[in-house]
Design a protein around this nucleic acid. Structure first.
Length: 493
RNA sequence: GCCAAGGUGGCAGAGUCCGGCCGAACGCAGCGGCCUGCAGAGCCGCCCAUCGCCGGUUCAAAUCCGGCCCUUGGCUCCA
């Protein structure tokens, strides 16, 4: 079964054929001027699942995700709280917090997390090539890309240079020859006006910090926004990569400009497949740092945990937009718990039982095969995570059905179901079944809960239901949910 | 204004590329039943869909074609 993906460049579904043995994957990462929010995490999780699926299908994946650590917005935060006294310190602070978020979400690590500040020589070299080849020009110490020299400009976002010309305000052209020209290199440091524009806390701007500058053939300056991704992508992957991922809001101008400067420099196709994730919205508008309507990843992790967050994202196809709401998170929690409960029940049923199966349930076994097939079909269909998730939920139903009113289980069938949950739900979707590995305290807590449950069972057997309910309520207050079943009581934290 | 994506049940959201298995998936909410001391979970069943509007192609359209209405995103920092 082959994978097909929707390529923004053509707007069509295409069969996925990477250029070499290794799939080269680049993700446009964050500008580290703030904590990451759930909109960013949506891209991470979907990319993570693509990455995991490709590996599951036997591909080697080389995954590069950058951090943009040179930006006016970072400079604007220098001196705020205890973020740091230099652009590099502020950036380092947020990079650390983003990496924490990523770990918290159970993302597979990328091979490299390159930073702009560490690739200035590569950026300068790329700009020099563009000037030599006639695609860029210097103007007052800054360098601009000349969009009129690149005939394909606009091919990703379906816009034409002529249209941009007519819309551009000639008076704002300044150093640029064409209003759509964009900066590859910006002369000087960050201006006080730029800092003021991005400061949110109303501090004086007279002491505006300048941000870092670097030496270049055109004098002191800073790289423009788009050039970094081209330079880092080529440095850590290749001139042509297989997959370039990013949020839909990056199609224009960021990705359009990446294509222009990269292809102009190498005469080679920059990326085979452009995959764009739909944006996360809250109450009808996109979640964004600038709109201030965001839910931070670390807050969300605390409130919902990684499995619920991942389930939430995987309840929608990556390319569609998604709306964040408390109700939507509740639903994700229900979905995840339904899955987890079926998994736990299956594990519980098999616990300590001889592997030799005495009964065989053809319905259960067929359901496992069906779920695997459907999951695979869905993922190969442009990473349709929601349908793949539906396949897992169907398997959960089959496991529940199997256990219903049966004295003896099809242990082999249940083990196959567990394997499918582990491989697909765990390995591909990155969900963590069976909870975290228990440390000493957690183990002790578990033993204490079981002790209380034993006492409660005796009360129940004696018909003292009031006492039994008291114990259950007391445990509930401590955050321990007790559920009675035919096989005895179970609990969840 | 220009470019792009989208409008499917109470909610949410697949299916639209490759028309028929869609009398529309999975889930949440609601209703009935089973199970249970109760609760929860689970199981079985049910309810709710003129698939934005109008027209066309076809034996057959949520899916293809044309027109219209509306929403969101991009065009400025943005995942």
């Amino acid at each position: 079964m082959t994978l097909s993906v929707t390529n923004t460049l053509t707007g069509e579904r295409e069969e996925f054929e990477p250029g070499g043995d290794e799939v080269l994957l680049y993700v446009c990462g964050l500008t580290v001027s703030d904590d990451a929010h759930l909109g960013h995490a949506r891209v991470w999780v979907h990319t993570d699942v693509m990455h995991r699926w490709l590996e599951h299908e036997g591909y080697d994946v080389r995954h590069v995700e950058n951090f943009t650590d040179v930006n006016e917005k970072i400079v604007a935060r220098i001196g705020e709280d205890d973020l740091g006294e230099t652009e590099a310190e502020v950036a380092a602070h947020f990079i650390a917090s983003v990496l924490d978020d990523m770990r918290g979400l159970n993302l597979e690590r990328a091979e490299v997390y390159p930073r702009v500040s560490e690739h200035i020589p590569e950026i300068v070299a790329l700009i020099e090539t563009l000037i030599e080849r006639g695609y860029a020009y210097e103007s007052n110490g800054s360098v601009y890309f000349d969009v009129t020299k690149f005939p394909d400009y606009g091919k990703l976002s379906n816009q034409s240079v002529e249209e941009m010309e007519s819309q551009g305000d000639a008076s704002e052209r300044g150093e640029k020859r064409h209003p759509a020209d964009f900066a590859l290199w910006k002369a000087g440091g960050v201006s006080a006006e730029d800092v003021a524009e991005h400061r949110k806390d109303g501090r004086e701007t007279s002491d505006a910090p300048a941000g870092q500058t670097w030496d270049s053939p055109w004098g002191e300056g800073r790289p423009g926004w788009h050039i970094e991704c081209s330079a880092m992508s080529m440095t850590h992957l290749d001139e042509t990569i297989d997959v370039h991922v990013g949020g839909h809001d990056l199609v224009f101008p960021h990705h359009e400009n990446e294509i222009a400067q990269s292809e102009a420099a190498t005469d080679r196709r920059f990326a085979r497949y452009w995959l764009h994730t739909g944006l996360l919205e809250t109450a009808g508008e996109k979640m964004s740092s600038s709109l201030g309507n965001f839910f931070t990843v670390s807050n969300a992790l605390e409130e919902f945990g990684p499995n619920v967050i991942r389930t939430f994202y995987l309840s929608t196809a990556y390319g569609s937009k998604q709306t964040f709401s408390e109700a939507a998170m509740e639903e994700a929690r229900e979905r995840w718990e339904r899955l987890e409960r079926a998994y736990d029940a299956a594990v519980e049923a098999c616990d300590g039982v001889d592997a030799r199966t005495k009964v065989e349930d053809p319905d259960l076994r067929a359901a496992v095969d069906e779920a695997r097939g459907e999951f695979s079909r869905a993922m190969n269909d442009d990473f349709n995570a929601r349908e793949a998730m539906a396949a897992l939920l169907e398997l959960a139903s089959a496991v529940n059905r199997h256990r219903e009113g049966r004295a003896e289980y099809d242990y082999r069938g249940l083990r196959r179901a567990i394997e499918a949950f582990d491989e697909l739900g765990g390995g591909v979707f990155g969900l963590t079944f069976g909870g975290e590995a228990a440390d000493g305290d957690v183990r002790l807590a578990g033993e204490l809960v079981e002790l209380v449950l034993d006492l409660r069972e005796r009360e129940r057997e004696a018909g003292n239901y009031d006492r039994a309910d008291e114990l259950r309520d007391a445990l509930a207050e401590l955050g321990v949910e007790v559920e009675d079943s035919a096989d005895g009581p179970t609990y969840r934290f």
